[in-house]
């Protein structure tokens, strides 16, 4: 089955109110082409699962798409706090359900492996335990046979995982090249459907010739979309680095909430296609500056 689809078509399949998990880690490898299209299609009331995120969550919040964020961390690292995330949580417009990285990974594994919970020692003695006491999504427990303390992490169901990768064939075998997959495989394995944006399509024959380079098999993937520089302004190791200037421009614009919505509409939402957006961010010249000059 040919699973190639446009970014627009892929995003059309995501209903309002869905639980959407975003790949990437901080400034790296976020599925930004899909994220931007979600904003353009004005999806609403999404629950966004993002283990360690930044610009991806900020765009979705600025676009009014988010009801709840389930995350361990959202920031621009040394380039500052994620402005829309910060404002929306402070005002109560968006709910944040905080976990740590490993607690989230364990919840995703419980879902992927069809287990009632996965145990970890992460989070013991922290306020994350009482924070989730009422919902019971994570529970501090003591093992009956050994007396050891652990945290039971219950299933975290996800409707759609969105991840960015280097290449895919037409039937949806995906190559993360090199096989540096951050925590993306954890969300892929836990999700009902996975959509993958890729830098390039390759022939199925290439996949068969080097099957050890495949990261996600076709039966785990629902759709693949071409998006050159699809992680921009985050990085896609080893091909390109994050674009510092964009983060700075965005943060500066966000420092004035009055004019920020105009900036966001004009700069992020308005360009019709992903290629148009990349062109508006400096096109080839910008691409050259971030390729292999990650810093």
């Amino acid at each position: 089955m040919d699973k190639r689809m446009g970014i627009e078509q892929a995003v059309e399949s995501i209903p309002d109110g869905a639980t959407v998990a975003l790949g990437g880690l901080s400034m790296n490898s976020a599925p930004m082409a899909y994220v931007r299209e979600i904003v353009r299609q004005e999806k609403r009331d999404l629950t966004v699962v993002a283990i360690v995120a930044g610009m991806s969550v900020d765009w979705l919040i600025a676009g009014g798409c988010v009801k709840k964020v389930v995350s361990g961390l959202v920031s621009f690292e040394g380039l500052g706090l994620a402005p829309s995330f910060r404002m929306a949580v402070q005002s109560g417009a968006v709910e944040i359900e905080e976990y740590s990285e490993d607690l989230l990974i364990c919840r995703l594994r419980a879902e992927a492996w069809n287990l009632p919970f996965v145990p970890t020692k992460a989070g013991l003695g922290t306020d994350l335990i009482p924070l989730h006491e009422q919902t019971g999504t994570i529970r501090a427990e003591v093992d009956r046979s050994t007396g050891e303390h652990y945290v039971a992490c219950t299933r975290l169901p996800v409707d759609v995982a969105l991840v960015h990768a280097h290449a895919a064939d037409e039937i949806g075998n995906v190559r993360v090249d090199p096989k540096l997959i951050w925590m993306d495989n954890e969300i892929v394995n836990a999700s009902q459907r996975t959509l993958v944006s890729v830098e390039r399509f390759i022939d199925h024959g290439d996949v068969v010739a080097e099957p050890h380079r495949t990261s996600y098999p076709q039966f785990m993937v629902s759709g693949v979309s071409l998006a050159k520089l699809g992680a921009y302004p985050s990085s896609c190791f080893p091909e390109y680095g994050h674009h510092t200037a964009f983060f700075q421009e965005y943060s500066t614009a966000a420092s004035d909430p009055e004019s920020f919505s105009a900036f966001f509409a004009d700069r992020i939402v308005k360009p019709e296609t992903w290629e148009d957006f990349i062109r508006s961010c400096g096109g080839d010249e910008m691409a050259t500056s971030i390729r292999r000059s990650a810093a």
Binding site: V52, S71, G72, L73, V74, S75, L81, A82, F85, R86, V89, Q90, G92, I96, E98, Y99, S100, E101, D102, L103, T120, K121, A122, G123, L124, G125, T126, D127, L128, L131
Partner: peptide
């Protein structure tokens, strides 16, 4: 995580990330 109460923070910080994991 937050400055102020969790549900109505004065400042929402990035989040603990791996702190809760690695501290333990």
């Amino acid at each position: 995580t937050v400055i102020g109460p969790y549900d109505a923070p004065k400042v929402r910080l990035p989040g603990g990330g791996g702190m809760a994991d690695l501290g333990s």
